[in-house]
């Protein structure tokens, strides 16, 4: 029964990973851009929520209404006036810029908030759960996270498929120079993509902060999990990202259970190994289109 529970919890945890991975997947899909500060931005958002909920004396949930738009705006501005300069056929500049930003964010958080772990307390909702059997209980909060992840991914997919802006996203992803001939401002598209990426990762960061304690240097681990979810699911596929997140989540919770029972391999390590297996067996990912 512990194993069934581990799988159920893993699926729910996968929702969080999928949410982390959404922005990474979208930015790569549209502009072949990999933001190495992605995980640190989530942690930054969580710290912003800590500060806001302390100064405004509100539930951290409420600060989402503030943190998410601020992060989205930040994403737009930093892409429009920063990252766009590093986009090109050579991926090196963009890697260097975002890696530099990642280290700056981590250390700025260390300087401002110290290395102590923080948490976001939203009250009793976090701990409430539905008990199916004695061994299997599903928390409302993890269900909420998975629900939000599904809504975000379905919403994005619909946006890409059926709106004028979504069409422009896809055209720019195919060929930015020809997209300009259509009157599409590719630089603006990139900025909007980054705004969406920052917004979704901010939501993920807040959920993470509610789920568990976090510190200024936790960002890279989140980046790595998000990246693994994207690669497992398949580059350029949003459905793949959801699937990849869930597989990674299950791998980690099952891995933890293995650790408990047999005292070998920890959860994250198990997740990494699953990622490596997928990379070896199916490098384009489970739902990938084979490009990458």
């Amino acid at each position: 029964m512990e194993w069934v529970n581990a799988i159920v919890q893993g699926i729910l945890l996968g929702g969080l990973f999928a949410l982390f991975a959404t922005g990474l997947s979208l930015a790569f899909g549209v502009m072949r851009f990999v933001n190495l500060a992605h995980g640190d931005l989530a942690i930054l958002a969580a710290f912003l929520a800590v500060s806001f909920s302390a100064t405004l004396e509100v539930n951290p949930f409420v600060t989402m209404a503030l943190v998410v738009p601020i992060m989205a705006l930040g994403g737009y501005v930093i892409q429009r006036f920063g990252f766009n300069w590093s986009i090109g056929t050579d991926p090196l500049p963009s890697i260097l810029v975002t890696f530099g930003l990642a280290v700056v964010i981590q250390n700025a958080l260390l300087e401002r908030y110290s290395a102590d772990s923080q948490g976001l307390d939203i009250g009793t909702f976090e701990t409430r759960s539905i008990e199916f059997t004695d061994d299997i209980a599903v928390g409302w909060f993890p269900v909420l996270i998975l629900g939000v992840a599904v809504v975000v991914l379905v919403g994005l997919q619909l946006f890409l498929s059926f709106t004028r802006m979504g069409r422009a996203f896809r055209a720019t992803a195919d060929d930015p120079s020809t997209a300009r001939l259509m009157g599409i401002n590719d630089r603006n598209i990139y900025a909007v993509v980054m705004a969406i990426a920052f917004a979704t990762v901010a939501v993920a960061g807040l959920f993470l902060g509610i789920r568990q304690t976090f510190g200024p240097t936790d960002g890279p681990a989140q980046l790595i999990f998000a990246f693994e979810a994207v690669v497992i699911g398949g580059l350029g596929s949003l459905w793949g990202t959801l699937l990849g997140g869930i597989i990674l989540g299950v791998a980690q919770t099952v891995g933890n259970q293995v650790d408990v029972e047999f005292n070998v391999l920890s959860g994250p390590l198990f997740g990494h190994l699953i990622f490596l297996v997928v990379l070896a067996v199916r490098p384009s990912g489970l739902l990938g289109r084979g490009r990458g």
Binding site: R167, A171, D174
Partner: peptide
């Protein structure tokens, strides 16, 4: 230089993006 991710109708529509 059509957009391969877009179908024919979408290729036409994206021409009218402006």
């Amino acid at each position: 230089l059509l957009f391969p991710s877009l179908n024919v109708r979408e290729n036409l529509l994206v021409g009218g993006h402006g």
